[in-house]
Each structure stands twice: as C-alpha cells, then as structure tokens.
Design a protein around this nucleic acid. Sequence first.
DNA 1: ATAGTGAATGTTACAGTATAACAAATGAGA
DNA 2: TCTCATTTGTTATACTGTAACATTCACTAT
Lengths: 158, 158
Amino acid sequence: MTLHDSPKHNHKHCVNTALAMAQQLCLERGVQLTPIRYQVLELIWASHKAVKAYELLEQVKPLQMAAKPPTIYRALEFLSEQGLIHRVESLNAFIGCRCSNAPHEQLLLICKNCQEVEERTAPKVMQALSEEFNDAGFIVHSKAIEIHGLCSQCAVQL
Amino acid sequence: MTLHDSPKHNHKHCVNTALAMAQQLCLERGVQLTPIRYQVLELIWASHKAVKAYELLEQVKPLQMAAKPPTIYRALEFLSEQGLIHRVESLNAFIGCRCSNAPHEQLLLICKNCQEVEERTAPKVMQALSEEFNDAGFIVHSKAIEIHGLCSQCAVQL
DNA sequence: ATAGTGAATGTTACAGTATAACAAATGAGA
DNA sequence: TCTCATTTGTTATACTGTAACATTCACTAT
C-alpha cells in the first residue's frame, strides 16, 4: 500500500479536482486544453508515480491511433509550460502538479520503494537557497530539487 | 570569459589537485583508478562545464581505440560511486567533484550562458531540507539540487 | 463566401542517451 | 598452475527526445 492508496486518499476526487482546475486555468489563460493534452494529463494523474513519456505513448495509442513520440512530447511541453505537470529530471519522467494556480518552487520527494512522488513547497528551503545563491551572485531562472528516499508509508514497512 | 577562465583561477593547478586527490582516495579505498577511468576523469576536469557521455567517448577514442559507449558509462559509474564526479540530472551530463574526501550534499549552480557548473555545500539549505523531510516522515537516500540561471560573471556581462 | 492566418496535429526520419549480455583479458592469491 | 574476481572488449539493442515538413482546422478580415 502506498501513501496515496491509503484509505485517507480519495484518488478519484484528487484527480477530478486536478483536471477541473486544469480546465479552469486554461480557460482563464486563453490556451487550449485539447483532447490529446487532456488525455495525457489524465493519464499522468492516474497515479502519483512519475510516468515516462513512452509509457504515456502506449497508453494514449488506444485513444489516439496516430499517436507517435512527438504527439506525447508536445502535450508534455504544453502541460509543463502551463505548470500542470513537472518533469522529474532524475527519472526522465513526469508527475501531475496540483499547485498550478500559484507560481511555486518545486521540491520533490521521490520514494524508491513505491515510486510515488510528493511535491512540497518548502518555503524555508527556498529561503535558504535564496541566501545561498545571493552569496554566490547567481541569478536564478529555475530550480530542480529532487530528494530520493523512502516515503513515510514505505519507511515503516521496511 | 567565464568564472573559471578568470585570471584568479589557475586551472592547471585546480585539475592537478583534483587528480592527485582522486589517486590518493582510490589508493586508500583499495579501488583501482585504471588508465581508462583516469583518462575520463581528466577529460571531465578539462573544464568546469558539464560534459556529456558521448562527448567523452569522442575524446577518449584517440587514447582508447576500442572505446565504445559501455567503456565510458562504466568509467562514469565508477567515478560516480567514488564521489569523484557528479551527474547533472537536468543536463544528462557530468562534472568533477573536488569535495570527494568528505561525504557531502551536492547543490549545483548551473550557468545557462557559460555552461559552467559550480558546486556548493550549502549547509543552511541542507538543514532546512532535513526539517522539511522530517516533517514529511521521509528517509533520505540521495539529493539532487540543481539551480539553473546566470553565474556572477555572466550576470554582470548581460 | 473565401482566402489568409496561426495553432495544433500528423508523419517520417533520425539524433542522442544508456544498458543487457556474453566474451576475453588481466592480475592476485591458493 | 589454477582459480576467482575485476576489468575491459564487443555486439546489439532499448530507451529518450527532436527536427523538419505536411496537413488539418477554426477563426477572421476582406
């Protein structure tokens, strides 16, 4: 049982909320959440595990017969630009983001056992980071903070 | 001019120190810094930019005629295990590490302009991170903290 | 109406990254 | 010398991502 399989987590509700918010945001921004893009987002939200592009491709094919790698990568690029998903650099994979309505720094906790990825905002970490790169005279454009280990659920089981 | 091209930075000395330390560490640990591994490490230290595996392959070929992808990836795996290099996840590339004698958390500042990568230990950030994942009940195995932006040199030039 | 425009998707081909699996060589100790 | 573990050679292939051009579609200015 993983963190998000737990009885406390109503995943259907979790997904519906994320998808509804995505639609709302795209509407507000005047960008198109087309069927392909929506399907990819839905597939990413199917679990809280990071999903690989070619896994998505296989899953999309029954829905979009013409799907080829660019189909997926374009959808991923769009979703990423809109802040609806994050790329997990250390896994070459993608996860859904539920904080898309506010710009935010991402910090990802990646469980080696159940493969689930939890996003946290971690203001204190970001504050410490700001001080660190100000010292270095470094001007930040983007951050990727990825922590690998065991999530609380898996930690107690192993 | 990049940060490490500056007159203040004696790169030959910088490399020699890193290579000497690598040899010393491998000796102490009873592991073999073979010619191939040494050459790859030397090539990585040729600059402070992150180097890609296939770039290394091209550069190693004159020295190791039989070099093929596994040649490089095995050397990279060894060097990485020994803490002599770090993988930059967001670039699919590698940089030398000068802090190999002490276990340390890595925080990488990656300049988009000159491509140089600076490693910092950032104890305050790591402290804040500890608190963050303790709150989450998360047991950390490894961290990848990669900040993209402009280094101090490039920031003033642009 | 329709021709032009821009966004999105289709399609082909390929570039770039990484590893599996097995063979051969090397070197140190029984 | 034999044996075992480590390292390297070799072949093949899997996985990840993009370039470039064609087509479709919806909108809108004429």
